[in-house]
């Protein structure tokens, strides 16, 4: 058994145990760790996002490379602070409208391309020359995608053939939810194993 002398691992080990203590019940150690996590994470993301935006996309291009057009982004950013005061709150609608519209303009072509056309294209299949097993799987995939979409079609009442097809759709959805759930459980369990490995190997040196 060789306990580490690394201060960082000691801090990480103690904080890991503090979070695990929640399994017994809510307690001061857990609350301390939880609040510390919120504070450190907020600080980390503030530094990452603000400095990468303010320094790399504003300070460097405007004051070092002379791209003054980027100053507009800085002005829009500063206008966000007008929402802190009730009388000027409405001004912050401009940067919000800009941000939302830029996002909307960006997602329309990219979503149509990636989430609709590409997905529909990958669902189509040509059984000619395909092994029987693969062709069957491709057919099941096509039926699954079509019936799932029918299940989410609410513009007409689900009666007759539409009802039957939407029932097939919910069958695929249930298999999908079950598989996703199982996959998530395994992901969490492997994360848990990773934490125990850290505690017993890296920190306490019990397991090699």
């Amino acid at each position: 058994m060789a306990v580490t002398h690394d201060l960082g691992i000691w801090v990480a080990g103690i904080l890991t145990l503090a979070i695990f203590s929640f399994l017994y019940k809510d307690n001061p150690f857990y609350r301390f760790a939880e609040h510390l996590l919120v504070g450190v994470s907020a600080g980390y993301y503030l530094v990452q996002y603000f400095f990468s935006a303010a320094y790399k996309k504003l300070w460097v291009p405007v004051f070092q490379e002379g791209h003054h057009v980027l100053l507009v982004g800085g002005i829009l950013g500063l206008l966000m602070f007008t929402r802190l005061f009730r009388r000027t709150e409405w001004i912050s609608r401009y940067p919000v409208a800009f941000y939302i519209a830029a996002w909307a303009g960006y997602v329309i072509p990219s979503y149509i391309q990636v989430r609709i056309l590409q997905q529909a294209q990958d669902t189509m299949f040509n059984p000619r020359g395909m092994p029987l097993g693969e062709a069957l799987s491709a057919l099941i995939l096509l039926i699954g995608v079509s019936t799932t979409l029918i299940y989410f079609y609410f513009s007409a009442e689900h009666r007759g053939p539409l009802k039957t097809l939407s029932k097939v759709g919910i069958t695929f959805l249930m298999i999908g939810f079950g598989a996703t759930f199982g996959y998530n459980v395994m992901g969490r369990v492997s994360l848990l194993i990773g934490r125990f490995q850290f505690l017993f190997t890296d920190w306490l040196g019990i397991v090699h």
Binding site: W103, A104, G105, V107, I108, Y111, I112, V114, R115, I116, Q119, A120, D122, T123, S137, I140, L141, L142, I143, G144, V145, S146, T147, T148, L149, Y151, F152, G169, F172, L173, I175, G176, F177, A179, T180, Y183
Partner: peptide, 25 residues
Amino acid sequence: VLNVPNAAAKRGIMIGVGLGMTATA
């Protein structure tokens, strides 16, 4: 199961989400 029925359900949801997002945009 992951690559066929699960992928079918996910793809159906993804196409639906894509249509919804495009309409909202």
